[in-house]
Design a protein around this nucleic acid. Structure first.
Length: 664
DNA sequence: CGAAGTATCTTTTTT
DNA sequence: AGATACTTCG
């Protein structure tokens, strides 16, 4: 293989891909061929004889990591197995696993997701006898997260919170568990306290690449910096206009810090957009120009103007979904596109429901990606909880989830007894349960004792089998049959048999994924733990079903992707910019604008924007107005031909801006 | 004592 | 619509 980089890339891309020594900061606008450049850069490094294991490429999502790895493999003509391409979090987990003992872990580590964390906080509060009346778990989890990631100080919290935090931490330890913040914080701690470990990483990773640099957090940057200070070959790629994760600690001042930490940095701007047609790019540029805080950048395209942007206001969300479907059919026919050319991007997960409903009714193939779609569904989480208990019965959080699902007569009072027993002896709930069924003096009723005994022997038996089996999915399936999980799901929805069936289908789908993973030759000797960690780190690891299907996702999840045709429903006030986000911090208006910018720039050729007059909200309906962001886009970029429209674009816009004036 | 029924509130984005 | 807290029923 001989790469002819000069012929394959434009001047700036070429420079970015071929300068391999020293720090490099690349400001890459939307659609500027960033991924392409990075892929070639990696291939180029390897061509220079740098071993795969010396390259560390960090991305933000698993999807992006997977894609990057695939594209490099494609260029090389063989899988790039020794390359480290992963998310910060997955990399962190790898580090923690490798040096577990130094951090006080023995054996397998479990990653707790948001829900697990909240459950654990409740547990901790109960055990520390802290009343949570005034405090909600959600807020506390957020505060803990800030503390761990260094954005807040524990010292400033009340004594009660501090105590709860200690309790929470000690629980994590006993379960051999880490939360998402630990995945960054612990490696950082390790590197700071164990210079020889840091040195090992510095020596190994001679070339570091970071994608979506604008979305790295303070701590992630620190981690990165520590490793990079060894050899200083670090290339970061980002776009401040696409920073949409500041609520999660993303700190685009990292860009400035990078310039200070690496003063010899070379800076390259990629400003030619290869993705969008002229009108789309002009609209996006006008919009983003309203942000005050940004690096100056002038994205341009050599493309034609292309289609105008289409704007439409509908009565209800179901009209809107219908409108999108008919437009998709039309565009599909006209352009001979497949369903895979279309993306429907929404601001919030809840907006997906009505759209999904309509797509299902119309029998249109779609796939939901990102968000909490699949692995977070209750029925799937239940099954995962069973798996986790089978892997480690001493994990109280999962045992609690499983203990009375389906109902087996082990209610609040039995669980209270278990808690008291476990607390007194400092053991896990599982051990407590073991004790309490064998001890005569146990306070349990005969009934509860019997049920508990039955559950424990079922779990033990299954656990033994699953650990020996090459077909864990089969064993799990068997367990679900024994507990009659399907009947349980059907019984949960007495008035809606379909729903119950659908949920069981999800369970079967999960079993399918599990079995697929297990049979995959790449999986090798991976254990149940590996699988569990994998799914908690990446809810989106469903095998890629996007081909030939419409993609439905949140705008956040769409970052880094592109579609021929993009639909943006619910472009309404309170939704984008999101009411809650503005309420919390008016300064986030700029982030909301960046979100809309990201959404627009996903489109190659066509954009359909819509809003509704009323939309279902919680129990009732509420009145909606078009988003003020629409007024920041020059009118002439929108389409005016609306023969079939009850109201013309112009009329609708004027009508609503007037209405808005009246209301405000 | 647990299960089933009723009332009330809640939804921003994700590793 | 779904989760949670509280009440009533068996």
């Amino acid at each position: 293989m001989k790469l002819r980089l000069k012929e394959l890339l434009n001047t700036e891309q070429y420079e970015a891909a071929s300068v391999t020594e020293g720090p490099l900061l690349i400001i890459a606008g939307a659609g500027s061929g960033k991924t392409r450049m990075i892929t070639y850069r990696i291939a180029h490094l390897l061509e220079l004889g740098i071993p795969q294991r010396a390259v560390l490429a960090l991305t933000f999502t698993n999807k992006a990591a997977k894609e990057m790895e695939e594209r490099v493999s494609q260029l090389l003509g063989k899988p790039a197995k020794r390359l480290t391409v992963s998310t910060f979090h997955a990399f962190g987990l790898q580090v923690i696993k490798r040096h577990g003992p130094l951090l006080g872990f023995r054996g397998n580590i479990t990653v707790f997701d948001t829900q697990d964390v909240q459950a654990l906080i409740k547990e901790s509060a109960r055990e520390a006898k802290i009343s949570l009346e005034e405090l909600n778990v959600y807020d506390i989890a957020g505060r803990f997260s800030q503390i761990k990631s260094g954005l807040a100080s524990l010292d400033k919290e009340t004594a009660v919170i501090r105590q709860l935090y200690e309790e929470y931490q000690s629980h994590l330890r006993t379960y051999q568990a880490v939360d998402f913040d630990d995945l960054i914080a612990l490696p950082l701690e390790l590197f700071s306290t164990q210079p020889e470990v840091l040195e090992e990483y510095r020596e190994r990773f001679r070339h570091i690449l970071v994608d979506e640099f604008q979305d790295t957090s303070r701590q992630q940057y620190q981690l990165l910096r520590m490793i990079a200070l060894g050899h200083r070959n670090i290339c970061v790629v980002g776009d401040d206009d696409q920073s949409i994760y500041s609520w999660r600690g993303a700190n685009y001042e990292n860009i400035t810090d990078f310039e200070t930490d690496f003063p010899e940095v070379r800076e390259i701007k990629l400003e030619q957009n290869y993705r969008c047609t002229g009108n789309i790019l002009t609209a996006a540029n006008h919009l983003i120009a309203n942000n005050a805080k940004r690096k100056v950048k002038a994205l341009w395209t050599g493309e034609q103007e292309g289609l105008p942007l289409y704007l439409r206001t509908m009565d209800t969300e179901s009209d809107e979904a219908g409108f999108m479907i008919s437009k998709i059919r039309e565009m599909k026919r006209k352009n001979r596109w497949s369903y895979g050319s279309f993306g429907i991007l929404v601001r919030t997960n809840s907006l997906m429901n009505s759209i999904e409903h309509e797509l299902v009714t119309e029998n249109i193939p779609y796939s939901v990606s990102g968000g909490q779609s699949f692995f977070a569904r209750k029925e799937v989480k239940d099954v995962i909880a069973y798996l986790r208990v089978l892997a480690n019965p001493h994990n109280d959080i999962d045992l609690l989830r499983v203990i009375n699902t389906p109902r087996r007569g082990l209610g609040k009072s039995t669980i209270d007894h278990l808690h008291r027993w476990a607390e007194k002896r400092g053991s896990s709930l599982y051990s407590a349960a073991r004790d309490m069924i064998s001890v005569d003096a146990s306070p349990l009723t005969g009934k509860a004792k019997g049920a508990l005994e039955e559950l424990l022997s079922l779990l033990d038996e299954t656990s033994r089998r699953i650990k020996q089996s090459r077909q864990m999915a089969e064993v799990l399936k068997n367990l679900l049959e024994v507990i009659e999980y399907r009947l349980h799901l059907l019984a949960e929805h007495p008035k809606n048999e379909q729903l119950g069936r659908w949920k069981y289908d999800n369970v079967l789908r999960f079993l399918q994924f599990f079995s697929q993973w297990e049979q995959d030759p790449d999986t090798g000797s991976a254990t149940l733990y590996d699988y569990l960690n994998r799914i908690s780190l990446s809810g989106k690891q469903e095998p890629d079903l996007r081909e030939g299907r419409i993609s439905l996702m949140t705008i956040h999840a769409s970052k880094g992707l592109e579609f021929d045709c993009v639909f943006l429903p619910a472009v309404e006030e309170e939704i984008i910019p999101h009411g809650r986000s503005i309420e919390e911090d008016p300064a986030s208006l700029e982030e909301e604008r960046r979100l809309f910018y990201v959404a627009l720039t996903r489109a190659r050729q066509a954009v359909f924007i819509s809003s509704c007059r009323t939309r279902k909200y919680l129990k009732g309906r509420r009145e909606c107005l078009p988003s003020p962001f629409l007024e920041e886009i020059p009118k002439e970029l929108f389409s005016h031909e609306e023969t079939d429209a009850p109201v013309s674009t112009e009329e609708a816009r004027d009508f609503f801006s007037e209405l808005r004036k009246k209301l405000s």
